[in-house]
């Protein structure tokens, strides 16, 4: 490589115009670091978030850099973590609390649903809650109970909350910064099984951060997914291509509000859809997605929308995880059912 080329590349890297290769862990850590550096009202806290740097290292090094008053540990009490977030938001702060694992959010449901979600409404807009609640979510890491759950339908059902889940490091970096800049409370669901996979992060250009994103275009069928299931659906799409089926993968990203227009555009083209999620089937977000698709594409759909999901059981122990989470074969079978469907 010539000296001038090297110099150009270095300049591009400094200017942030060249993508950097980061794991989702590193991308989130970097986003938090930049949010703390640019917004003096931001505070980051949760169980082990301070000194340890988080059990998933997402807040690694942030306390040393930004100080103990801005990045700190809390007692093991989620109701306290979220209750404190309410008070901090009322006092003008921009809290980014962490609930260490999905299943630990249950003790804080009162604070999330009865306070955070409706304080702005209740106070006629005088007490907004600019809170970004980070929740390592979904399964896939062989962890015990309460460490692999998918709470998106629960949160999405609550008026006043926004819900988002990134599927790759680039979106994780930009969506976290975007969520933290919003005046409304956002539940930020991090797919913990994807923390370690690396991807290119274009730090200078996040692209469109609202709504869904087509991650793989296709003609015959749309797979709708979010979080960790996006990567699995991309694998399925590659395998389906071997059989001559051209699958589009739509990463929903925002689970509240759901991008109905993107669903209509994608399924309007492919005329077939399968929704994939880790959460249990009944009253899962797949039902909402299926209804939105039916509403916009009823006249042209070739088959009813299929759902491939977890089962209506408590999240199982790690040994049974692979049977519970939609695997490649179960998703392929869902696709096959849609392809085989004939009217009448």
């Amino acid at each position: 490589m010539s000296e001038s080329t090297t110099a150009t590349l270095e300049a591009a890297a400094v200017a942030g115009t060249r993508p950097v290769r980061l794991s989702m862990q590193q991308a989130l850590n970097r986003a938090l670091d930049e949010i703390l550096a640019t917004d003096p009202k931001t505070v980051v806290f949760g169980e082990d978030c301070g000194r340890l740097g988080g059990v998933f290292r997402i807040t690694d090094g942030l306390q040393a850099k930004h100080g103990e008053s801005r990045v700190f540990d809390t007692p093991l009490a989620e109701s306290g973590i979220l209750g404190m977030s309410v008070g901090l938001a009322m006092a003008g702060f921009h809290p980014i609390p962490e609930v260490q694992f999905d299943g630990f959010a249950y003790p804080a449901i009162n604070q999330i649903v009865c306070q955070i979600a409706r304080m702005n409404y209740r106070s006629r807009g005088t007490l907004p809650m600019p809170i970004t609640l980070r929740v390592p979510s979904f399964g896939g890491i062989r962890a015990p109970e309460h460490h692999g759950e998918s709470l998106e339908a629960l949160f999405a059902h609550v008026p006043g909350l926004k819900v988002v889940s990134p599927s790759d490091p680039h979106d994780a970096y930009h969506l976290l910064k975007y969520a933290a800049s919003r005046p409304d409370p956002v539940i930020f669901m991090e797919p913990k099984s994807r923390y370690w996979q690396k991807g290119d992060v274009e730090t200078s250009d996040g692209g469109t951060l609202t709504g869904a994103r087509v991650v793989r275009p296709g003609r015959h069928l749309t797979l709708v997914a979010w979080g960790a299931m996006v990567a699995r659906c991309l694998q399925v799409a590659e395998l389906a291509a071997e059989d001559g089926i051209d699958v589009e993968v739509l990463d929903l990203r925002w689970l509240k509000p759901i991008d109905a227009e993107a669903l209509a555009a994608s399924v309007g083209k492919t005329r077939r859809a399968v929704v994939v999620h880790e959460a249990p089937l009944t009253s899962g977000l797949g039902a909402e997605v299926a209804q939105l698709i039916t509403q916009s594409c009823f006249d042209t759909l070739k088959a009813p929308v299929e759902r491939v999901t977890g089962f209506d059981v408590p999240y199982p122990s790690g040994d049974l995880e692979d049977e519970y989470i939609p695997n490649i074969d179960r998703i392929l079978l869902g696709i096959q059912r849609v392809l085989e469907y004939r009217r009448g």
């Binding site: 590659e238 074969d329 096959q336 392809l339």
Partner: peptide
């Protein structure tokens, strides 16, 4: 690497 048993036929 992704493993499969199901093949699509349509």
């Amino acid at each position: 690497a992704p493993k499969r048993r199901v093949r699509l036929s349509a």
